[in-house]
């Protein structure tokens, strides 16, 4: 699966964040998700969805080589992560997470957000399909 978005379909409801945090962390907490729909109000009045494009910037800056490409995604070897935060600083979309007492975590393109988005604003570019239930 490769995530892609159509920003103009987004209504900012954050269902993607809820599904992400519940799937990856078993927690109800949008702040602990790997996707960020951001509203731009009062002007121009739209949304931009920031998500992991698997661009690899995090891997480029990781000093221990903890992040590497596995198949379609960049994955973190938590044993190698030293919690330095370089990946968080480097992420162009602010979707790397490094919480206190944890190793860095990132999107693994599991598709929970695709399945949950009521607007098909985030979709799987491999199939060109959104979830929309």
């Amino acid at each position: 699966m490769h995530l892609a978005t159509i920003d103009k379909l987004c209504s900012g409801c954050k269902a993607c964040q809820l599904a992400c945090s519940m799937t990856r962390r078993k927690e109800v907490n949008p702040k602990r998700s790997f996707i960020r729909p951001e509203g731009r109000f009062p002007a121009p009045g739209d949304y931009i969805i920031k998500y992991c494009t698997q661009c690899g910037e995090c891997a480029n800056v990781c000093p221990t080589g903890a992040i590497s490409k596995k198949g379609d995604i960049y994955d973190i070897d938590e044993d190698l992560c030293i919690q330095c935060g370089a990946c968080v600083a480097a992420c162009p979309f602010s979707v790397m997470l490094l919480l206190d007492g944890e190793k860095a975590k990132k999107c693994n393109a599991c598709g929970a957000c695709v399945a949950a988005c009521p607007r098909a604003a985030v979709y799987d570019s491999d199939t060109s399909k959104g979830g929309r239930y």
């Binding site: 209504s11 409801c13 109000f41 009062p42 009045g45 949304y47 607007r119």
Partner: peptide
């Protein structure tokens, strides 16, 4: 109307965000 503007976790957003011109300026 320029976009739907949903409340938290809403699958059926009734919120509409609009833009109009008033004396040459955009009003949102």
């Amino acid at each position: 109307i320029v976009t739907d503007k949903g409340c938290f976790a809403c699958p059926t957003p009734c919120g509409k965000y609009s833009r109009l011109k008033k004396e040459g300026k955009d009003v949102y």
